[in-house]
């Protein structure tokens, strides 16, 4: 599904990603861990097409399509989704209207008719229930005045609505208390199937108790320095990141 080959990227002459290789197949959950500043969030932004970053070498293939030069919305239409670490507050646009617009624009790009209003409402209700979201919440302005937990839950709600092929969760666990974490993880697990895939970026092992990864990668200084199974996450939790850094130097 996703194939990243020798990816180099940066911002204003500052190199951040220095040769990333990564392959994610349908049905897989990959976790990327690593210390602050190792390039995890940059990788997420580059995959979703944030224009601040420039790809200087390598390529990203999604279902065989080269994403180079594709706008963020075009990547979304292909089925790539990013759950933001810091979701943006947009006063004046309700969660419901936002979702309607996003879904119908995506359908338009895929050559489909707009979703009928009753079907849309049903979908919204169903997914809100999955994420244990109060109905009142849906008529509030997008992320405005939401608590950290509400914002993250709203991100996963959007994911559930859009049903992407590849969902990238950028530090979705930060700012969540244990109950919210359980709700979010439960939502993700219920949405997981053989056709889609998840890339979970996290600083801590905690989230991975709930969303169990097939592969764990460790990033350091713009590179994936180690990959393994879920045991690697536990090892990192125990030993911290220093040994990885030392290994990387060696």
């Amino acid at each position: 599904m996703l194939k990243i080959k020798n990816l180099h990227a940066g911002i204003e002459n500052k190199k951040i990603l220095k040769g990333i290789n990564l392959e994610i197949k349908p049905g897989e959950v990959h976790a990327i861990m690593g210390p602050n500043g190792s390039g995890k969030s940059t990788l997420a932004s580059v995959i979703t097409g944030k224009e601040d970053f420039e790809v200087t070498r390598g390529q990203i293939l999604f279902d065989g399509t080269d994403l180079d030069d594709m706008a963020p919305e075009e990547r979304a239409h292909l089925g790539i989704f990013l759950s933001f670490q810091y979701p943006v507050e947009i006063p004046g646009v309700t969660v419901t209207n936002f979702m309607k617009t996003a879904i119908n624009e995506t359908r338009k790009a895929q050559g489909l008719e707009e979703m009928p209003a009753n079907q849309m409402l049903k979908l919204i209700r169903e997914k809100a229930e999955l994420l244990e979201i109060d109905r009142k919440f849906l008529s509030r302005s997008l992320n405005e005045g939401f608590s950290g937990g509400e914002k993250k839950r709203n991100e996963i709600f959007q994911m559930a609505m859009l049903q992407p092929k590849l969902a990238i969760l950028d530090e979705t666990d930060s700012g969540l208390d244990i109950d919210a974490l359980r709700v979010v993880a439960n939502g993700v697990n219920r949405l997981k199937n053989e056709q889609n895939a998840f890339l979970v970026i996290t600083h801590y092992q905690r989230l991975l108790d709930y969303i169990v990864p097939d592969v764990v990668h460790v990033m350091h200084d713009g590179k994936i320095v180690k990959s393994g199974d879920k045991e690697l996450a536990l090892e990192l939790e125990e030993k911290g990141y220093d040994w990885i850094k030392q290994e990387a130097v060696l």
Binding site: T48, P72, E73, A76, F81, I90, P91, V93, A102, E105
Partner: peptide, 19 residues
């Protein structure tokens, strides 16, 4: 943020201006 949800650039700008 809006574009990453599939809303094209022009519509995203309009939505933000409308808001």
């Amino acid at each position: 943020y809006l574009r990453s949800r599939g809303i094209p650039e022009k519509e995203a700008s309009a939505l933000l201006m409308y808001a």
